Amino acid sequence: MKIFGITTVAILAGSTAFAGGMDIAPAPAPVPLAPLPAATPNWTGGYAGLSLGYGTGSAEVEDDEDTTAVDESADIDFDGAIGGVFAGYNYDLGNAVVGAELDLNAANFDLDDDVGSIDEVHRLKLRGGFKAGSALIYGVAGAAYASAEVLGDDFSDTGWLVGLGVDYLVTDNIVAGAEVLYHQFDDFDDTGIDVDATTLQARVAYKF
């Protein structure tokens, strides 16, 4: 009995000493999670809007051509307002966006010396660009149609265009932007006159 009591006391003493000398490991610090990349807008869908701006250009008589619209010695400059409506569709590929657009514009490009004016500029455009946050920066290429009244006669022709633009999503559905386009019409309506024009237009659209 005495031996049992001594053994019990020894075990309890040893347990107490062991418990007092044991260090409890601290809990591991939480590992911070990497921030998720900011979501970029999805541009897929149709849109329609209005544009308004300014254009300038020149009509240059080709050498050795029988011109029917103006005197052969005249190279004519023009400028004025341009504005209209447009509609298109974009397809979002991730970091890139492609699409197509049609715009119809009334113009008031007055030719020098009261020769006449360019009254309409319509365009069918292919667009392709990349996203930068809420902005879309893109290039343009396509076909253009223009009509003019010169010295009392009506003329019209098709040509080509290239340009650059930027769109910005103000809200999920409202897009604001600007576009600069260069147009070229060679031998405009068989007159022997080459016409080039550059336009800059501000744009606002509703994205569906």
Rank of each mutant, 00 (worst) to 15 (best):
K131F: 07
A96N: 07
D112G: 07
D103Q: 08
N108M: 10
L111S: 03
K131N: 08
G128C: 06
N105M: 07
G139R: 15
A135I: 03
A106I: 09
A107C: 07
G133V: 00
D119I: 00
V97L: 10
G133S: 06
N105R: 08
I137T: 07
L104Y: 10
G139W: 11
A135K: 03
V115C: 00
G139I: 12
Y89H: 14
Y89I: 10
D103G: 02
L93Y: 00
L111M: 15
A106W: 06
G116L: 10
D119M: 00
G129R: 08
D112V: 05
S134E: 11
G142M: 04
D112Y: 05
G139D: 11
N108I: 04
A106Y: 09
L111F: 07
S134Y: 02
L104Q: 04
L104M: 06
D92V: 08
R123P: 03
G133T: 02
G139H: 14
A96Q: 07
D113E: 12
F130C: 05
A144G: 14
F109A: 08
D119F: 01
A146L: 02
V121I: 14
K131T: 11
L136S: 06
L124R: 12
Y91Q: 13
A132H: 05
H122M: 05
H122T: 06
A107P: 02
V115D: 11
L102R: 02
L93C: 04
D92P: 04
G94V: 03
L136F: 11
L124F: 15
L102M: 05
V97D: 14
S134D: 15
V140F: 09
F130N: 02
A132S: 14
V121P: 00
A107R: 04
G99T: 05
V97S: 12
D110N: 10
R123D: 04
V140R: 13
A141N: 07
N108V: 02
N105G: 01
V140T: 15
Y91D: 12
I137R: 00
G129V: 08
I137A: 10
H122E: 03
